[in-house]
């Protein structure tokens, strides 16, 4: 299991120095822009209900009212940061570790450093401009603008299909045409979309210049607003560089009733798939009901940003002690 000969960091010290410099650059970037650094709890009495994200569950042994209730390590600081926004904080950012159960690989580690920030009064387009500015600063890119590509355009360009109007069978057929080996997979419509995106589209995104992928199907809105239209789309975006997913942002959903409905739908999906139950964040719902200022927010994976900055191909090259050495 644990091999004491692995005591050395997996990343070279030069990478750890570069990482420290990037953290300093990020803090300077937000200080110049008067965005307040905040810290919210890592351990919380509510977690994420997202069926695709699993949490680490712990127990506080007391004393006090929380004793013997489950607590979850946060998978992102989104909910308490929204409570700060509703309390009038103004623009805020947080740099810290988040934890995700079961995620490990070349591009995944169950704990990783997330940069998350919120801009009251902005929409996702304004926030995408700022994401671009930050990435340019950190990576020292020339001012090549990022490509902004809708989810529909990406599917049209790389697979020749419309992701909003193709049914599950069509998506499955397209996937099987490219790889007959996936014929036996049991996936929902969004699962087939994810398979096509990760296998056949992502590798082409952000090559030569960053790509901002936006306007997701409403079924993948997560915590984004849905813009009515034909088709309706979620005001959500993702940043890709060299095929690597770096950030996910939303024009944030502020409607407490809609948020509660999404929590219920996600909890139902978790139960149907026999996944562990996670308590929905009632304090977030109360904060939304009290009034979240219209805002946009984004979470960016800092370890992956360091990977891109250093041309590394695995997290182990930029993290001192990934899971195998932790």
């Amino acid at each position: 299991m644990s091999d004491p000969h692995d005591w050395r960091p997996s990343a070279p010290l030069s990478a750890l120095r570069a990482r420290a410099q990037i953290l300093a650059t990020i803090r300077a970037f937000f200080a110049e822009r008067a965005v307040l650094e905040v810290e919210t709890p890592y351990l919380s009495s509510a977690g994420t209900t997202d069926p695709h994200i699993d949490s680490f569950e712990l127990r506080f042994q007391g004393p006090g009212p929380v004793a013997d209730h489950p607590l979850w390590l946060h998978t992102s600081p989104e909910f308490p940061m929204k409570r700060l926004l509703a309390a009038g904080s103004g623009p805020i950012y947080q740099l810290g570790r988040v934890f995700r159960q079961g995620e490990v690989g070349r591009r995944h580690n169950p704990e990783f450093t997330l940069l998350e920030w919120y801009r009251p009064g902005w929409d996702h387009h304004q926030l995408m401009d700022e994401v671009e500015a930050l990435v340019q600063r950190v990576l020292g890119l020339a001012s090549t603008a990022a490509e902004r590509l809708s989810y529909a355009q990406a599917f049209q360009r790389h697979l020749g299909i419309d992701p909003h109007y193709s049914d599950s069978e069509t998506l499955q057929q397209i996937a099987i045409e490219r790889d007959p080996g996936v014929a036996g997979l049991q996936l929902e419509r969004d699962g087939w979309l994810d398979l096509l995106l990760t296998h056949y589209i992502e590798p082409h995104l952000g090559v030569g210049r960053p790509t901002l992928l936006m306007d997701y199907p409403p079924s993948q809105a997560a915590l984004a607003r849905i813009r009515p239209g034909e088709p309706p789309v979620a005001e959500r975006f993702e940043l890709y560089i060299d095929g690597l997913e770096l950030a996910n942002g939303f024009h944030e959903l502020g409607d407490a009733g809609e948020q509660a409905a999404r929590f219920r739908a996600e909890q139902a999906a978790r139960r149907a798939a026999a996944q562990p139950e996670v308590a929905a964040d009632q304090r977030l719902l109360a904060a939304l009901a009290a009034g979240l200022p219209p805002c946009a927010g984004v979470a960016l994976g800092v370890d992956r940003l360091v990977m891109v900055a250093l041309g590394a191909s695995s997290l182990a090259e930029v993290v001192a002690f990934p899971l195998e050495r932790a």
Binding site: H52, R106, H108, G181, D190, L195, H199, E202, Q220, N248
Partner: peptide
């Protein structure tokens, strides 16, 4: 290889060798 979009379905893309033919293929598992 563990492949997972931040907000989506996780997959394992594996490279495997057929022990009868020696041929190497890729296969995706949910």
């Amino acid at each position: 290889e563990f492949v997972k979009p931040g907000k989506g379905q996780a997959f394992n893309r594996v490279k495997i060798r057929n022990l009868k033919s020696g041929r190497v293929i890729e296969r995706t598992f949910k």
